[in-house]
Structures are given as C-alpha cells and as structure tokens.
Simulated scan of single mutants.
Amino acid sequence: MQYYYRRNTVPVRIAQPRNLSSLNGKDEVALEQDAERKIGWLLKLLFAGTATVIGYQFFPYMGDNLIQQSVSLLHVKDPLFKRMGASRLARFAMDDERRMKVVEMGGAQELLNMLEGAKDDRTRKEALKALSALSRSGQAAEALHNAGAIAIISSTPDSSEDVEVEKYKASLLQRFQDLKYDVLP
C-alpha cells in the first residue's frame, strides 16, 4: 500500500516495508537462535585469537627481562612501586639459579637500599620478605653478607604494628648466624 502526501505541492511517495516472508513464527525463532549461536562462536574465536596474540607479545618478557624490570622498580622513589618490585623478586626467588640471577642484576643491593631507606612497615616487610627469599641460597646469602646486610637488617626499626616485620628480621639474622657470619647483637 502506498501513501502520498503533499509537501510544497509536490507529491512524495513513502515506502512501507512489506512482509515478504512466508515463514511462520517458529522458523523465525530457529533462525534467530542459529544466528546467535554462530555469532557467539565467532566472538569466542575472536577472543581466543586476541588472547593468543597478546600472550605471544608478552611471553618474551618472562624470565630475565621480568627480573630486570622488577629490579628497576626498586629504583623508583614511590614506596608502592618499590613494594611491587620487592614482591615480584620474592616470587622469582624459587631456586638457587634465579636467586643468583637477582643478585647478579643488583637486586640484593637494591633491596638492602630499599630496606635502609624505608619509612613505613609495609615497605620494610616486603624488602625483608624478598631478602629472606634470596637468603635461602648460600651464595646469595654470602653476597648479602658482603653487601652489609647484617648491619642494615639489625638497624631496621622494630615494628609495633606488623608482626611479620619482626618475623622476617629474626629469620634473616638467624640464617646469617647459621651460616657462621658474625651477627651483631
């Protein structure tokens, strides 16, 4: 059916949509469900492909680069970034090889500098936690001792709020004592 109306005395034809479909309502629902299912699979494949590409982009940053980035975070002035770097280093220090890699990259010295300059208990706790993880290796503990770790750890202020600071501090000093290094009283 066509409708006309006058606009500025020129007849204009308005098109009306026609229902040319001979399908009934059940067929339409089935077609819609099929289309939704296909679009859903397409979106899932698109997501999986994107996640794979992103994974391959970040994979090279694992290992040495990630340890180096964590050590670099210890150079930042913001205590939050220092805590994040120390926390990452504590997680990386799983075996002697990785512990020594952290020491070789300067992470042990930076953790000691972080501990020495820490103004809050959370920062001290993360530094002590990372140092404790590093000291599980005999070579790393020796490198810490040579860097003056005993004096820095001994001079760390006691915490009245965080018990873990005292626990890590005592654990580190005990580790150095077990390794026959001179521990200051």
Rank of each mutant, 00 (worst) to 15 (best):
H145K: 06
L74D: 03
K129N: 07
Q174R: 11
S137T: 01
S155K: 14
A30Y: 09
W41P: 07
V71N: 05
D34I: 14
I150A: 00
L23S: 05
L134R: 00
N113H: 00
G148H: 07
K44L: 12
T9D: 11
S155E: 11
G138Y: 03
L128I: 10
M84P: 08
L42H: 11
L131E: 00
V29D: 14
L173C: 08
K38P: 07
A141L: 02
A141S: 02
K167R: 14
N19L: 08
L73N: 08
Q33G: 04
R124P: 03
S22I: 09
Y3E: 15
D182I: 13
F81S: 02
P11I: 13
R136M: 04
Q2I: 15
S135I: 03
Y5R: 08
A133Q: 01
E28I: 13
M105P: 09
I150P: 00
P17C: 03
M94A: 15
M105I: 08
Y5I: 12
R13V: 12
N19S: 07
Q177V: 13
I54M: 08
Y4A: 13
A151I: 05
Q109A: 06
Q174D: 14
L111W: 00
S160F: 06
A130N: 00
G107E: 03
M100R: 03
S159K: 03
E142I: 07
V29K: 13
R13K: 09
Q174F: 11
N24M: 03
A133P: 04
V76K: 02
L66P: 08
V29H: 13
S135N: 04
R7K: 14
I67M: 08
Q68W: 09
V183I: 11
A133C: 05
L43W: 04
K44P: 14
F176P: 12
R88F: 10
H145S: 09
M100T: 07
Q68T: 14
A51R: 04
E97A: 09
G148K: 02
L43E: 08
L128S: 04
K38E: 12
G138R: 03
E164R: 08
M62F: 09
K77A: 05
V12F: 10
I39W: 07
L31K: 11
R124S: 01
K169I: 01
M84A: 07
L45F: 04
R175K: 14
G148D: 07
S87M: 11
R7Q: 15
V76C: 02
P185E: 10
G106T: 05
S171C: 13
